[in-house]
């Protein structure tokens, strides 16, 4: 397991943002890179690789990886639907949206479809309360969700996967 030369350059750039000897600060950004590069989750192997790359003890990496909610410690589907369920979103119908996704895909929060395409996860406030209900998909938010928009989103993801195969 290793990053490509291009990603290694990115790691070096990240490390250069901190003073001499403070390279541990690069751990959180580098874990983001690693999760993206190595299958969308952080396996023990991936964490050990990051530890050796940044010259940290493996435990320093595990401690951090297990603290932050954006790191997946188990494999997830190709498309991860992270639906906000906190109060302000609830006031505008997030419960119904979560239920609808469950009905459409047959997965409860925390589960992945049998074909490995979709994972449903409930998350806490993502700073989009005024655009509720909402979900995060990759690096972007999908806001003002309706059942129709959820349908379109599932379609969009399925097409994208089909195009890649």
């Amino acid at each position: 397991m290793t990053f490509t030369a291009e990603k290694l350059k990115e790691v070096a750039e990240i490390v250069s943002r901190y003073p001499e000897g403070k390279h541990k600060s690069s751990l959180i950004p580098v874990l983001h890179l690693a999760q993206r590069e190595f299958g969308g989750w952080l396996s023990a192997e991936t964490m050990d690789y990051v530890a050796s790359l940044l010259k940290l003890e493996p435990i320093e990496v595990y401690e951090v990886a297990t603290f932050y909610s954006m790191y997946n410690l188990k494999p997830v589907g190709k498309h991860l639907f992270e639906v906000c369920q906190t109060g302000p979103c609830m006031l505008n119908g997030s419960d119904d949206i979560i239920k609808y996704i469950y009905e459409r895909l047959g997965i409860k929060p925390g589960e992945t479809t049998a074909d490995g395409l979709f994972t449903l996860k409930t998350v806490e406030c993502l700073g989009a309360c005024g655009y509720a209900p909402m979900l995060q998909l990759g690096d972007h938010y999908r806001e003002h969700l309706t059942k129709e928009k959820v349908d379109a989103l599932i379609e969009e993801c399925s097409k994208q996967t089909a195009a890649q195969n």
Binding site: R17, K22, K24, S25, S26, L27, I28, P29, L31, H32, E60, E63, V64, F67, Y68, S69, M70, Y71, V123, E124, C125
Partner: peptide
């Protein structure tokens, strides 16, 4: 100016937790 991206933790908004996180640790 450099940007540091967190990784999902409300507590990292508390200023000392934020500093811990910026140092590459748990918040």
């Amino acid at each position: 100016i450099y940007i540091q991206r967190g990784a999902g933790a409300y507590i990292c908004g508390e200023e000392t937790a934020l500093l811990e996180s910026l140092e590459g640790k748990r918040g």
